[in-house]
Design a protein around this nucleic acid. Structure first.
Lengths: 336, 336
DNA sequence: CACTCAATTGTGAGCGCTAACAATGCTGCC
DNA sequence: GGCAGCATTGTTAGCGCTCACAATTGAGTG
């Protein structure tokens, strides 16, 4: 810990103190096999005494690796992406990687390419993309970053790894729950159709209905926000075409609940509502929301598993799917 | 763009193509003054032709700067911290810095010191701390990172810069609004008292009440979660001591609203409720929530202003305060 | 006892860049 | 015309590390 020279200690200083060459110290730090036990202990003692820490810049200059993962994200203020980031960060740091982030303010091909370049300037060892728009994959296909890329929320492709929650399965869970309760007219308040999840949930809803021999003609599209859920809710309260609604996310469901409450439509007596995500607040809506839970942190962790496989192995990049889970609360019941 | 050798181009390659020395190229990249117009243009053309990008590792090896800001955060899944991060990221990237993050899973002196070390390994040029616990500042005082540190949510101290929203002022805004409407018994559902904001809002509430000649004896402490708001709401619904409640954040207010609804306590007719934060959903609660808005992104941006001042100037580190704003909706009215 | 072979340790070069200094060319001025 | 003084460009060294290879040691073998 004592630092007489005012300069940070380097390999050479440790070597001198331990009475070995700098190369031997390097071997100790990097866990190379051929170092005798005694030497290793002497070196480790010297490292501890000087409080030596390896200079990352020098290391990455020669190895051409930065021990850094770049996370390219949009919508970071949202529950899902934020928790995915948390999962990625945890797994990355556990694996000895730094995590660099860049938030996309607008999602466009240009912005994505720009940010990838930003990361390449930093010589990241891999890029995790948390941008749930469909066009992301297209933009990614265009750039050849030369490092592994894993896209969250997609199955990826030959060049890009993927980690996703099975959205169609989640939609199916929600619809089946409603069908089981006796509903026959089940509508869907979808997310924007340029979002991967927006499309997947709508498809899942549609497929599950058709599998049950029911019509899938009651579809409205929102923008994920509580505000759009509110607007749609006002409209739907007037029509009353469906006895149950599968809503694309919990926030829209919140707005919808608010609109129904204002309009005197009772949930679940008049209309049943199922959300998607299971945010921490969803159990405290009025009424508490039946919804589909996604484990975002797990998603982030899996994402890093794939990434590490891609970095270390170098072989073709993988894919993983996380299963969603239905959480039944009080916003659903049998139709009147 | 053509890359014949398979290796990334470096300074030397650009120099050769432009017919100058590598040092001149370096000067062009770094915007040094004494380069003739013609040379500069020739070099820039060569850079464009080769698609040259500076090697960050080599640069930071010699300059001892990484152009990276470390963000040490906890509770990143929450609305406030997430948006603060967004503001920091934007300002940092605009200023040409990379942003490295580390999330704290548990807040403790040890964990904070550990993470600071993690950042020092990376040779960050500055550290932004988004950890709203009171003990954070204490832990930070202990470590001498050798780089500027800015703590969000505090005024900092001699060694640590600060950027905060004026919490006491926000609490005052809320209380004054209730007093103006005629309330005389105004309770507070506080956040945890080991959080800076939890304490500051409670103090602000207390001070504003006493300034109005009212009692500040109705205080309950929650943990920020909707669940704790719900539990407290059930208890309060039975007591009915206050005609108005200032709740520490919007999530607890949501839980409280839920409990009141279940218990048949009408808001605002029976009890008025004010929240804090103004999350995007708060306008869609039942009823829409009167609350105090904090501009977290602005907070993050200001934070980086101070940071940049500390890095470039090197002089004593600054402080900034962002003003909160009252947003009146439908959860408050005159007492019955 | 000389020789091979493996285990361990050391030596030298160089990753790509910037800082410090040296060299060059050009202007103006006495 | 010669020389100071500035603008511009080049040269050299070295940041701290890892890699490739060389050197040394010691054990095992015929």
């Amino acid at each position: 810990m004592t630092n007489s020279s005012g300069r940070l200690p380097r390999l050479e200083d440790v070597a001198e103190l331990a009475g070995v060459s700098h190369q031997t110290v390097s071997r100790v730090i990097n866990d190379h096999p051929n170092v005798s036990k005694g030497t290793r202990e002497r070196v480790e003692a010297a490292i501890a005494e000087l409080g030596y820490r390896r200079n990352t810049a020098a290391r990455s200059l020669v190895t051409r690796r930065s021990q850094t993962i770049g996370v390219l994200a949009s919508e970071l203020a949202q529950y899902g992406p934020a928790n995915t980031l948390l999962g990625v960060e945890q797994a990355a740091r556990d694996a000895g990687y730094f995590v660099s982030i860049a938030a996309l303010r607008t999602v466009s091909r240009e912005a994505i390419l720009d940010t990838v370049r930003h990361f390449l300037d930093q010589a990241v060892d891999g890029i995790v993309v948390i941008v749930p728009h469909s066009e992301t994959l297209l933009a990614l296909a265009e750039v050849k970053p030369g490092v592994p890329v894993v896209a969250v929320g997609s199955l990826g492709n030959a060049a890009v790894g993927g980690a996703m929650v099975d959205q169609r399965r989640g939609a199916e869970l929600a619809v089946r729950h409603l069908v089981d309760q006796g509903h026959r007219r089940i509508g869907h308040v979808a997310g924007p159709q340029d979002w991967i999840d927006g499309v997947a949930r709508a498809e899942g809803w549609s497929a599950a209905l058709r599998a049950a021999g029911l019509d899938d003609d009651l579809l409205v599209v929102g923008d994920w926000s509580a505000g759009s859920g509110y607007d749609i809710g006002r409209k739907l309260a007037g029509e009353r075409a469906a006895t149950a609604l599968f809503v694309g996310n919990d926030q829209m469901a919140l707005g919808l609940l608010r609109a129904f409450n204002e309009a005197g439509v009772r949930v679940p007596q008049d209309v049943s509502v199922v959300g998607f995500d299971d945010q921490p607040e969803s159990g405290y809506f009025t009424p508490p929301l039946t919804t589909v839970r996604q484990d975002f942190e797990e998603l982030g962790r899996r994402c890093m598993d794939i990434m590490l496989g891609g970095i270390e192995g170098g072989q073709s990049i993988g894919t993983t799917v996380v299963e969603p889970e239905l959480v039944v609360r009080q916003s659903t019941s049998a139709p009147a």
